[in-house]
């Protein structure tokens, strides 16, 4: 596992070698702020909490995670550098982990850059710090699952656009499973136990409890296991 380090370093620095990091951060923070203040009615809600911010995270991630991961493997395949990578003395697990952790670290930094919102609520009122902490923790974990899924999609193709669309679609499905309307529809079409089972896979409902300050073990495990499953599948895909 010691060979994760050089790969992590290279990939992480890679975000800052190109405009990707800066464009990404600006778009991420701007969309988070705009959604929170306008449709989220941050001020009108008159609450010293970040619930309005957190509730938009699953939707912002839906675009941002595929954007950050689409090049992860697709670009390596297109440019042929994966031939170099996989003839170096490192395992596929190390390569997948190194790249994923770099993407996750960068994503986490972007999430934490929303800290001015924390300062704002602290300045305007006396916030309950519990939900803010669990909300951020949940966002980072959920981000990890998103990124792992997007890394898998990227490993399936050598075309970044296809990687983006594929990631987007998988994440969209996982998001929609938690929407009431979709649940009701599935309830009428499928046996109740199946509909219930499928709705357990939703990002939205899994994030719900973390957003309001709880630390549900099941939901945290869900994000971790989903992420690990996607990463393990990525390894299998790359090893053919």
């Amino acid at each position: 596992m010691q060979q994760v380090k050089p790969l992590f370093k290279r990939e992480f620095a890679g975000y800052f070698r190109s405009p990707v990091a800066y464009v990404f951060s600006v778009v991420f923070l701007a969309s988070a702020a705009i959604l929170t203040f306008f449709p989220g009615q941050f001020f009108e809600s008159n609450e010293a909490s970040l619930r309005t911010l957190f509730q938009f995270f699953p939707w912002i991630f839906l675009l941002m995670a595929p954007a950050i991961c689409m090049r992860l493997w697709a670009e390596e395949k297109r440019s042929g550098t994966w031939e170099l990578l996989f003839t170096l003395p490192l395992t596929t697990v190390e390569a997948v982990l190194g790249k994923f952790l770099a993407a996750w670290a960068f994503f986490t930094i972007a999430i934490l850059l929303t800290f001015p919102m924390v300062v704002t609520v602290a300045y305007l009122g006396t916030p309950d710090w519990g939900p803010i902490f669990t909300g951020y923790l949940g966002a980072i974990l959920m981000g990890g699952s998103y990124l792992a899924i997007c890394s898998l999609a990227s490993a399936l193709t050598r075309n970044q656009v296809i990687a983006f669309v594929l990631s987007f679609l998988i994440c969209l499905v996982l998001l929609f499973l938690g929407i009431g309307l979709v649940n009701d529809l599935m309830g009428t079409l499928l046996p109740w136990w199946l509909a219930e089972g499928i709705s357990q896979f939703s990002f939205l409902s899994r994030y719900e409890a973390l957003m309001i300050g709880l630390l549900p073990v099941g939901d945290i495990l869900f994000f971790i296991l989903l992420g690990l499953f996607a990463l393990a599948t990525t390894v299998l895909v790359l090893e053919r």
Partner: peptide, 8 residues
């Protein structure tokens, strides 16, 4: 065709 990471 000696692939390498172009941005490095």
């Amino acid at each position: 065709s000696s692939p390498a990471y172009p941005e490095m």
